[in-house]
Design a protein around this nucleic acid. Structure first.
Length: 221
DNA sequence: GACCAGGCACATC
DNA sequence: GATGTGCATGGT
């Protein structure tokens, strides 16, 4: 089967199984940016505690957060873990954002996605997944977010080999799907659901919604 | 009490 | 360049 048709089938199957995910609920795009740093290697429920604390402190606003005291920030985001690193990284990101846009996302509209991505990646603590999450979910750019779940599912079904890079994984999706922000957002969310429920280190292939489409990659069924 | 969660940077070889 | 390690909390 053609790769683009296969990926489209995979998405449709997952979406029918899990439903639309509405994955990154946030009141503002800025809140998505903040959450993107806080969620690194961290359960979302812990991130929500930190986000709530920042809101309660009046810091969920670019200008205010950019000037926040480091130690105060640390104590507020502590529930999200890695709080010493994340507080510094968050400040750097927000300071970049304020310097670049004056705190106004709309002012970045005409800046090419590749340019923004390169600038994000140059910031310490912002790697490819965090940069792409910000671009896709906060700035609404059509860039596919790759995470550990995505790689596991792709490699397990032999769409790419285990040594594939982040960029190769990203290109697999971007190169074979319509350049559609909503699709990229929900596809990524569906892959996370898949990874959490079935495509686990110890897989549950026979129960997986993709089983009828792709068969059992472990050969156990 | 281990294991994991919506990564990344850096040291060392 | 590849491999290993520190970062840290809270839920299961």
């Amino acid at each position: 089967m053609e790769l683009s048709a296969l990926l489209t089938d995979i998405y449709r199957t997952l979406r029918e199984a899990f439903g639309y995910q509405d994955w990154w609920p946030a009141q503002t795009a800025f809140e998505v940016m903040v959450g993107a740093v806080l969620t690194q290697r961290t359960n979302w429920s812990n991130v929500e505690k930190a986000l709530s604390a920042l809101k309660a402190a009046g810091l969920m606003e670019p200008g205010a957060l950019a000037e926040a005291d480091l130690e105060r920030l640390q104590s507020l985001i502590r529930p999200a873990g890695y709080y010493r690193q994340k507080s510094r990284n968050l400040l750097r990101l927000v300071q970049w954002f304020v310097a670049r846009s004056g705190g106004d996302i709309a002012s970045l509209e005409r800046v090419p996605t590749d340019e923004l991505r390169a600038e994000l990646l140059s910031l310490r603590g912002i790697g490819p997944e965090t940069a792409d999450s910000i671009l896709l979910y906060a700035l609404g750019r059509p860039t596919f977010v790759v995470d550990a779940y995505t790689k596991r599912a792709v490699v397990r079904h032999s769409l790419l080999d285990a040594e594939c890079t982040y960029e190769e994984l990203k290109e697999l999706f971007e190169g074979h799907l319509p350049r559609d922000v909503e699709l990229y957002q929900d596809f990524h969310a569906q892959l996370v659901q898949l990874g959490k429920r079935y495509c686990r280190p110890r897989p549950l292939c026979s129960m997986c919604p993709l089983h009828p489409l792709l068969g059992d990659p472990t050969g156990e069924a």
